[in-house]
Design a protein around this nucleic acid. Structure first.
Length: 271
DNA sequence: AGAGGTACCTGGCAGC
DNA sequence: TGCTGCCAGGTACCTC
């Protein structure tokens, strides 16, 4: 479900409900997520004070006075603040009860998400240590992308979606950024010039910023921490629009598949 | 080393 | 209506 803008939207929505709160208890109904939720997580979190909520790639980092809770939403995960007691549904796998009686509920039908704990600095965690730069941070640039692409034969789309190259770009925004930069998604990453990489980096930045400003993209079921959908879907130029006309040149948008992922592009605009 | 495919899991939907 | 097959926003891991 969530790419970087959706995770950032959730982070911003949850932050005021969580920062400064103490964890009363953690309830794990279903530990079988991507990796089993560690049995000792409840003991580690009980009584911990949440100091800060940050994001790295698509990981949410709950910094506490005891260590860091790392949460990933996978494809179908969501986090909601619940105020009224409602009976849990079949996919409500984890709950964090807070000292103000608030409840953070984690729902994830496909169970590709993760709840992990580390007492070392979060950026040293094996899952985070080798991530590429944040696309909205200062370390990300067309020059850096260009350098990383030297000698690479894989497609630019797969390159852009590789979190070790740049963090947090998934299928929707890879398609959109390549359209914005007029680059064909199947083009080899190593055969794109510096000027076009600069344009691409600008496009990545712009599309992510716009999506965050809209509260993310809701395709079927994304909701933020307060249960609201995102409105970027209406701004999508190519994603999910196979056969429709290109907003730039009116040619029919083409849909192909590579590595089990749908790819959308304009065969006339993108080279 | 790099590139590509597979696996994890459930729900929704199109097509028959 | 009910079954089957395919698709989905992620990504670690395996093989070639």
């Amino acid at each position: 479900m969530p790419e970087l803008p959706e995770v950032e939207t959730i982070r911003r929505g949850l932050e005021p409900h969580l920062v400064g709160r103490r964890v009363r208890r953690l309830l794990v109904r279903e530990p079988r997520l991507r990796w089993p939720v560690a049995p000792e997580l409840e003991r580690r979190l009980r009584g911990a004070r949440i100091l800060q909520l940050s994001r790295r790639a698509k990981y949410l980092l709950f910094h506490t006075d005891r260590g860091t809770l790392i949460v990933h939403l996978g494809m179908s995960g969501s986090l909601r603040i619940i105020r009224e007691r409602a009976a849990p549904g079949p996919h409500d796998h984890v709950e964090l009860r807070l000292d103000d009686d608030g409840l953070l509920r984690y729902t994830d039908p496909r169970r590709f998400g993760a709840w992990l704990w580390t007492e070392a600095p979060a950026e040293k965690h094996p899952l985070l240590a080798r991530l590429g730069p944040e696309p909205l941070g200062n370390d990300f640039s067309g020059d850096r992308l260009f350098q990383a692409a030297r000698g690479r034969t894989r497609s630019i789309k797969s390159f852009l979606m590789d979190s070790h190259i740049v963090a947090g770009i998934g299928n929707i925004y890879a398609n959109e950024a390549l359209f914005m930069a007029a680059i064909h998604p199947a083009r080899a990453a190593g055969r794109i010039g510096l000027a076009r990489y600069r344009r691409l980096a600008g496009a990545v930045h712009e599309v992510l910023q716009q999506a965050i400003a809209c509260g993310g993209t809701t395709l079927r079921d994304f909701v933020d921490g307060d249960g609201r959908p995102g409105y970027f879907r209406q701004s999508l130029q190519v994603y999910g629009r196979g056969g429709q006309s290109c907003p730039r040149c009116a040619a029919a948008i083409r849909e192909t598949r590579s590595g089990q992922r749908s790819t959308f592009y304009c065969p006339r605009c993108q080279h």
